[in-house]
Amino acid sequence: MALIQGIQIIGILFALFMIYYTFINFKRKQLKKSESALWFVMWFIFLLVAIFPTYLKKLAETLSVYRTMDFLTILGFFFIILLTFHNYVQVKKNGRKLEEIVRKIAFRSIKKNKK
C-alpha cells in the first residue's frame, strides 16, 4: 500500500510539472491554443488517475489486467510507441522538406550567377 502511495505522489508531482511545462510552452507561443488544451486535458486525466487509481481498476479487470499499475504501464507503453512513430514520420517529413529547400536554393544560386 505504501509503495502505491509513493508512486501516486510521484505521479501527481509529474502531472503537475507537465501541466506547468505545457503552460510555459503555451505562454512562449510554442504550442497553439488547441494543442495546449489537448495536452492540459491529457495531464489532467493523468493527475486524476494518479490521485484516484481505483477508478481504473474496473476497466483494467475488464481487459484482463488485474493490477492497476500494470494497466497504466501498458497504456504508457502504447502512448510512447504512438509518439515515437509520430516523431519518426515528422522527422522524415521535415528531412524531405529541408532537402527540397536546400536543392531549390542551390538551383537559384546558379541562376543568379548566370545573371
Partner: peptide
C-alpha cells in the same frame, strides 16, 4: 550547385 548545409551524398 551549392548546398547551404551538408545534406549527405545521396541528396
Amino acid at each position: 550547385l551549392r548546398h547551404i548545409v551538408n545534406m549527405g551524398k545521396g541528396a
